Amino acid sequence: MKTYQTQPNDSFASIAKKFNIKDENFLQTFHNLNCSESDVIYNELPSGTSILIPEDPQFLSENSESDLEQDCMNDHNFEEEAQSDHEYQENNEKEIDNSANEKSEEIKESENSSSEHDGKYFVIQKGMVQCNQGFKFPKLKVTSHQKHYWNDADGQADYLAVTEDDLQFDPPAQPFGQCKLKPSSGGYLPCTYAPVGKWTKTYDKVKVMGKCCVTELSELMCSTGGKITIFKHGQQSELGKRNVDNADSKEQQVYNPVVDFEEFKEEINGEDPFEVE
């Protein structure tokens, strides 16, 4: 993260373009989430203000990343042409070693990222969310599909799986009540929820119609500066015998890999040792 001193006629849009950031809303939200409360910017951008600039690749545009890769390739080719045959061979050997190390690191990172959802629940429509700048806890509203249900053979709407594209809440107007980032003499002003992008930290190994599923770890950013997280996933913590019979073993194994669900089902439905034939 770095800072930028704003100049006259600067705007979030022009600064985002200058630093190859995907969208001006990403820049404004990033600044508001990471700056002190006195430095939060709502509308106009004053000249001479220090703006926090993200350096994480997820905030950068694809063009900037491809340009950076191209520049690196050109520099690399220039250095190779200037080397002798002996140096060229040594550098190639080093590049092979570095490439192997990088792939090893990527595998480790992939394993670490996939494990963070272990033991966590998928979120369903009757789940509830919270905003760190709000006061109320609205329910989710699934609009991305009407196809997949978690732990409900009857297909009740409350059990629809929430995906990364489900950005609406119930109630739709002022879902979080008042906003702490909008103080006034008469109290906090009403929430004006406006999502920035999709849900993040979703589970990309399970998808519904090509969309990643939301879990208890998922997060969503609001353009005003609030961070929205899961308050309740909505699923029942305990399973009755009827639920066990209707549950899909493969699905259960995905979101609760610690439990051998087939063995658990046999225990629940096993013969009573005291039953008289």
Rank of each mutant, 00 (worst) to 15 (best):
M1Y: 12
M1H: 13
Q5M: 12
T6F: 09
T6N: 10
N9E: 13
K18H: 06
F26Q: 03
F26I: 11
Q28D: 01
C35N: 08
C35K: 05
V40Y: 11
N43T: 11
T49L: 08
I53F: 08
I53K: 07
I53A: 05
Q58H: 13
F59E: 14
E62G: 07
L68N: 09
Q70L: 13
C72K: 14
N74Y: 11
N74C: 09
D75Y: 04
D75E: 08
F78M: 05
F78N: 06
H86D: 10
H86E: 13
E87S: 14
Y88Q: 11
E90F: 09
E93L: 01
E95C: 07
S99Y: 13
K103E: 12
E105L: 10
E111C: 05
S114V: 05
D118R: 14
K120L: 15
Q125W: 04
V129I: 15
Q130C: 12
Q133N: 15
F137D: 01
P138Q: 15
V142L: 07
V142M: 07
T143M: 07
Q146P: 03
Q146I: 08
Y149C: 12
D154N: 04
D154F: 01
A157N: 11
A157K: 13
D158H: 02
D158M: 03
Y159M: 13
L160Q: 09
L160R: 12
A161H: 01
V162M: 08
E164F: 12
E164D: 14
E164C: 13
L167I: 11
Q168H: 10
F169Q: 14
D170T: 15
D170R: 15
D170Y: 14
D170P: 03
P171E: 15
P172R: 13
P172H: 11
F176E: 01
L181S: 10
S184I: 13
G187C: 07
G187M: 03
G187P: 03
V196G: 06
V196L: 06
G197T: 03
W199Y: 08
W199N: 08
Y203P: 07
Y203M: 01
D204Y: 03
K205E: 04
K205N: 01
K211H: 05
C212G: 04
C213I: 05
V214N: 02
E216A: 09
M221R: 08
M221V: 05
T224N: 01
F231T: 02
F231L: 07
H233R: 05
H233I: 06
Q236L: 02
E238G: 00
L239F: 04
K241L: 00
K241Q: 00
N246H: 02
A247H: 04
A247R: 03
S249P: 12
Q252Y: 06
V254W: 03
Y255S: 01
E263R: 02
K265N: 02
K265V: 01
N269K: 04
G270C: 02
E275H: 09
